[in-house]
Amino acid sequence: MAHASLWEGILCARARARPFRHNNVEDLKRKIDRYGPGLVIVDSLYSTNGNLCPLGDFVDAAETGGCAIIVDETHSFGCHGKHGGGIAVDLDLADRIHFRTIGLSKAMAARGGVVVGSARNMEYLRYEARPMIFSTSVLGYEVAGFNAALDIIAAEPWRAEQLHANHRFLRTGLLALGYDVCESDSQIISIVTGTLENTVTFRRFLDEHGLLGSVFCPPATPENRMLLRFTLNASLDTGALHHALDVCAAAKQKIDMRGWPTLLA
């Protein structure tokens, strides 16, 4: 479930990846025992399927195994935690995490990104990290926009509350219709569609009825386990959510779904 940018970073660093099973702390521990300490890298909220990470367990495992830990908060920042600070802040884990990375293209609706860590590590990155050395700086008006967005997030917590009320409503409705969204527990809701043919047919039906779903296919997913992702926001009203469920209900009547191997009974 790791983002492609992680693999690019591994290549850039000439490091060796030792993948462990998704959200499986025991498998991580076995890998540390086998290969020794290193950098543990996880997302707090996975963009592919909307799955939350049991972050406290991973931080504990990293500390016990003598590892540093990197947590990407791109999809949780602004939407989760006190004042939108992310899941690490919400769980009071920020001071135990060596690096937190945040892309600003999601809740902040901007460009650029942030790396949070100790002053010593940040100084090192400033002068040694090639992506930082050979990159343009964000501009003054962009920084002003970031600050304004942070003020809104802090002053209007109802936005995050409404966002998660919306995701719970839609997820519950999709489950009741028999769609496989079991791994999604956030504002990102992915339906397992299976094959390319299933996914294209479903995507076209949704599009024809005014509903946008993003296709996830190989290499972003395993073969024959393609996904169609809904990304919710706080501005969706009850009518829009009911429309989404009505369209998905109609899809079950209009589309032959017998070839969906992961569809719930």
Rank of each mutant, 00 (worst) to 15 (best):
L6E: 07
E8S: 07
E8T: 02
R14S: 13
R16C: 03
N24F: 00
L28R: 02
R30W: 07
R30N: 04
K31S: 13
R34E: 09
Y35C: 09
L39F: 14
V40C: 07
S44N: 01
D57A: 15
F58Y: 06
F58V: 01
F58H: 06
C67F: 12
C67P: 06
A68W: 06
V71E: 03
H75M: 10
F77V: 09
G78V: 06
G78I: 09
G81Y: 07
G81D: 01
H83F: 12
V89L: 12
A94C: 06
D95K: 10
D95T: 15
I97V: 01
F99G: 00
I102D: 08
M108D: 09
M108I: 10
A110N: 15
G113P: 05
G113C: 11
V116T: 05
G117V: 02
R120D: 15
N121H: 12
L125I: 08
L125K: 11
Y127H: 11
A129P: 02
R130S: 12
P131F: 05
F134V: 04
V138E: 05
V138W: 02
L139S: 11
L139H: 09
G140C: 06
Y141I: 07
Y141P: 03
A144D: 13
A144T: 11
A144F: 09
A144E: 14
A148P: 00
A149H: 06
L150Q: 07
L150H: 02
E156P: 06
R159M: 04
H167F: 08
H167L: 04
R168V: 06
F169Q: 13
T172G: 15
L174S: 03
A176L: 07
A176F: 04
Y179C: 02
Y179A: 06
I191K: 00
T195N: 02
T195M: 01
T195W: 00
T195Y: 00
L196V: 05
N198H: 03
F202Y: 07
F202P: 02
F205W: 14
D207H: 14
E208R: 15
H209G: 08
H209I: 05
H209F: 04
G210A: 12
L212I: 06
L212V: 05
S214Y: 09
S214D: 14
V215P: 04
F216P: 03
A220C: 10
A220T: 09
E223D: 05
R225A: 09
L236P: 00
A240G: 10
A240K: 14
H243P: 14
A244P: 01
A244T: 04
L245T: 07
A249D: 06
A249Q: 12
A250M: 13
K252T: 10
Q253V: 09
I255Q: 02
W260R: 06
W260I: 13
T262W: 13
L263G: 08
L264Y: 08
A265V: 10
